[in-house]
């Protein structure tokens, strides 16, 4: 992993550097004009967010059933990144809403739900911090259940009458506007790579912390 990290970082940086060019080259959307360009990062950040939640849920289950501390480190990194990318998605979504709907915050179902999902992972960090000794396990439960509830949150959007662009927009984009579709894919890959790099760094930090704790205890054991 360490060998792969430098190329990963370089690739991510290059893709982010090139992303504005890709986005600038797409056509102007007929009603939203310039603001529509937010969409490329908006959509991409939600993809990274979904990946972060998936990682947190699966890693929590691994920690819970295998008692492998690496699972716990991965889960906490996933939860923090879910909050980060979720916040990014909410801000870009809010900017979009200002232009499209004329208000910063519309009680649109998907935005509301995203905020709720955001709360779950803030709750995850809270239980880690204030849950007392052994809170990692409680947090693991939260991680699994949080990841499991997200699809339900997502699904209820389609059923609640919503003003959010429907998910089918993304599907149709491939046929109606291939340049937009390409830019969207490009940004999604860039965000997923950013997610992977941040995850690696965060997990590494957490392992270092564990190593430090171990050394500290070993030092105490010295006569």
């Amino acid at each position: 992993m360490r060998k792969l990290f430098a190329p990963l970082l370089v690739l991510t940086a290059v893709m982010f550097a090139y992303a504005p060019v890709v986005i600038a080259n797409t056509r102007y959307e007929s009603t939203m004009f310039l603001v529509q360009k937010i969409f490329y990062f908006h959509f991409a950040s939600w993809m990274a967010w979904a990946a972060a939640i998936g990682v947190c849920g699966i890693a929590s289950a691994v920690y819970l059933f295998r008692a492998d501390p690496r699972g716990d480190r991965l889960a906490v990194a996933g939860a923090e990144l879910a909050i980060l990318f979720g916040a990014f998605g909410l801000v870009t979504g809010s900017l979009w809403g200002r232009k499209a709907w004329g208000v910063w915050w519309q009680w649109d179902a998907r935005l509301t739900m995203a905020l709720m999902a955001e709360l779950i992972f803030v709750g995850y960090l809270l239980v880690r911090k204030y849950g007392g000794p052994g809170a990692e396990k409680l947090a693991a439960g939260m991680g699994i259940f949080g990841a499991a509830t997200t699809p339900f949150i997502y699904k209820s959007v389609d059923w609640w009458r919503t003003i959010h662009p429907q998910t089918s927009v993304v599907r149709n984009l491939g046929e109606t506007a291939p340049d937009m579709y390409g830019a969207m894919l490009f940004c999604t890959v860039a965000f997923l790579l950013l997610f992977a790099s941040l995850l690696t760094v965060r997990v590494h930090l957490e392992s270092r912390r564990a190593e430090l704790d171990r050394l500290y205890l070993a030092l105490e054991d010295q006569p």
Binding site: Y130, G131, G146, T149
Partner: peptide, 26 residues
Amino acid sequence: LFAAMLVRSRTRDVMLPILLYPITVP
């Protein structure tokens, strides 16, 4: 499940609603 696992946490009273409501939003 959450109330059961929070039994051993000092902060269970406040943690239960914090964890429970976001997850049961659906």
